[in-house]
């Protein structure tokens, strides 16, 4: 019989619970900075006129970019994708990313993102005891779901 030591009942109670919505803005400068960081040379990510010629409403969000949360300094946790888990493992590694797009996302879009934990697992790995948290984020523009992201976070 395996004994779970990292995952508490309180943590399990978060599974499936949808977070409060977080506002996520997609703006031109952020799209350009993201595109430059990835090394794009395609002008569609830098020049709004070129983007419009190619059928986009404005500069498209480059693949992998879903905007930046609007931070509220009075509620610093509001930009976090995760519930406030209290664990003995505090170091983070990204385990995986899965993004599905249902529509173009472009500069000027103001999205709302809700997140929920969909799975919690515990494993013993080369970094010791690991907690694996799988979350699902849903991005909406108005009522329309424009993207879904599934992220795997490893705490060790």
């Amino acid at each position: 019989m395996t004994q779970s030591t990292l995952i508490t009942d309180e943590m399990r109670s978060y599974i499936g619970r949808e977070s409060e919505p977080v506002t996520v803005e997609v703006d031109k400068t952020a799209c350009r900075m993201f595109a430059r960081a990835v090394g794009y040379t395609d002008p569609v990510f830098y020049d709004e006129e070129e983007a419009k010629r190619r059928g986009y409403r404005s500069i498209p969000a480059p693949p992998g970019f879903l905007g930046h949360p609007v931070y509220n300094p009075a509620r610093p946790q509001a930009g976090s994708y995760l519930p406030p888990f209290r664990t003995t493992v505090t170091r983070n590694l990204n385990g995986g990313t899965d993004i599905e797009y249902f529509d173009d996302i472009c500069a000027g879009d103001v999205l709302t993102m809700t997140s929920k934990v969909v799975d919690l697992q515990e494993r013993e790995g080369r970094l010791g005891k690991m907690l694996i948290i799988v979350s699902e984020m849903t991005y909406r523009r108005g009522d329309q779901v424009v993207a879904k992201m599934r992220g795997t976070l490893i705490r060790y």
Partner: peptide, 10 residues
Amino acid sequence: GALKHALLGR
């Protein structure tokens, strides 16, 4: 990791 995801997208 997310940079590698974005590079696959590029």
